[in-house]
């Protein structure tokens, strides 16, 4: 009997409580909701603007959004703090298991969640299975900018075309650049050497990026803080993004 073709392993190998490699800590008490991270992310990662019409259909393509909810019944509503939400780079990601073409894979090397654009056929199963609504879909060739505007594209990042799912990559191009530089100099990546665009742009330094497997790094100390919470923790997705929430925003609500 002919042997069946070997189907590649789609599920990430993860252990319960595993720290992961790269992580973000976001201090919601510091975030002012200025949207600088959203703008910086779009510039760094060639995220196109969809325009008013398509935004009306809910086709915005920002990889990070500043979320704000209201708690309680009107008129006794209370504002929750600003909460920048990007892909949580889950250790056990719900999006990975449902992709029929293995376009959304778990990077074994960087321990993050990847979208392989040239494999993606646009079934959008992953976006439907993402509890954080972190994935965005290219509904049209929004990146067909007229000539002088096309010069703003970052050459380190793919310009995605229509019909492709995309999402936050933790600015993997910057991770690669820093690890490459560190390797050439024969050392480990220093804490704070890699900064994704959102963390770099944040004027309040609310977003901290770093190594989670290094117990001395700033982000792993923050993620063990007593204010630390994870989004939808009970789903068991093991998100790598930690939110710090302590203070009560009395003056806002």
């Amino acid at each position: 009997m002919a042997s069946l073709p070997k189907i590649p392993e789609y599920k990430a190998e993860w252990a319960e409580g595993e720290a992961g490699r790269w992580g973000i800590a976001i201090d919601m008490d510091l975030c002012t909701g200025c949207q600088a991270c959203v703008a910086a992310c779009s510039m760094e990662n060639n995220v196109p603007f969809v325009g008013e019409h398509d935004a009306g259909y809910g086709r915005q393509m920002a990889w990070i959004r500043v979320e704000r909810l209201w708690e309680g019944e009107y008129p006794e509503v209370k504002a929750t703090p600003f909460q920048p939400v990007m892909c949580q780079q889950c250790g056990a990601a719900p999006c990975e298991a449902v992709c029929p073409v293995f376009a959304t894979v778990h990077s074994q090397a960087e321990q993050i969640n990847l979208q392989v654009y040239n494999r993606c056929v646009g079934t959008r199963y992953c976006a439907n299975n993402c509890p954080y609504v972190a994935r965005v879909f290219n509904w049209a060739d929004y990146s067909n900018y007229p000539e002088p505007l096309a010069n703003q594209f970052n050459p380190d990042v793919t310009v995605r075309r229509r019909g492709v799912m995309e999402k936050c990559t933790f600015c993997i191009q910057r991770i690669h650049k820093a690890t490459d530089q560190a390797k050439a100099e024969g050392r480990e990546v220093r804490d704070g050497e890699v900064q994704p665009a959102c963390a770099q742009a944040c004027p309040a330094d609310a977003i901290v990026f770093g190594r989670l497997d290094d117990p001395e790094s700033k982000v792993s100390k923050l993620s063990k803080d007593k204010r630390a919470i994870k989004l939808l923790e009970d789903l068991g997705t093991q998100p790598r993004v930690t939110y710090l929430k302590g203070g009560y925003h009395g003056n806002l609500g």
Partner: peptide, 12 residues
């Protein structure tokens, strides 16, 4: 090998 055959090494 993990690093060299990882999708994220070349595709991002």
């Amino acid at each position: 090998r993990i690093k060299l055959i990882d999708c994220g090494t070349c595709h991002y």
